[in-house]
Amino acid sequence: MNTKILFALALCLCTQVAIGQKYFSKSGKISFFSDTDMEKIEAENTSASTVIDFSSGAIEWAVLIQGFQFEKALMQEHFNENYMESSKYPKAKFKGVIEDHTKVDLTKDGTYEVMVNGELEIRGIKKPVSTKAKIDVANKMFTGTCSFSVMIADYGIKVPKVVENNIADEVDITILAEYKPL
């Protein structure tokens, strides 16, 4: 008898893992903006992948550098060739934790402010990132948004003197994804 109960318990545990509390998106939007007096540079990628596991608060993002679309083709080429070296470092990744994920109630519509801590990897260089994020719950689905800025020098991106005034030292990054259950 005892074993049967244990067995049932084990099965329960298994199913719990299988259902999980994981949500994903494959069409996450990541855009960045560099603003100087000389030039405004903007690019957007609309095919970033992301998964959130609400049981642990773990969050991950990955994006193909080559998928960033610029207004000017030449900028896009320089971005890939000279600054990001996208053939060598094809992806940027983020791995972190939503610290206060327990306060998000996915059954109740509303906006939740959360804190995300983690590591952002660009050009193979990992740096800690800590930022506020927003989770908008509506109809058991939710949208995650977040914006923060990074210093490009932190990721080993060097800007030559001639275009020094065209590229900002600090670039603003905006992130948005509509999550669906996995």
């Binding site: 994903f24 494959k26 992301t50 596991d53 773990a58 991950e60 993002w61 990955a62």
Partner: peptide
């Protein structure tokens, strides 16, 4: 299973 899934969530996609 749980551990492996948590270590790399994106591999689920």
């Amino acid at each position: 299973n749980l551990i492996s899934q948590e270590s790399d969530l994106l591999s689920l996609l």
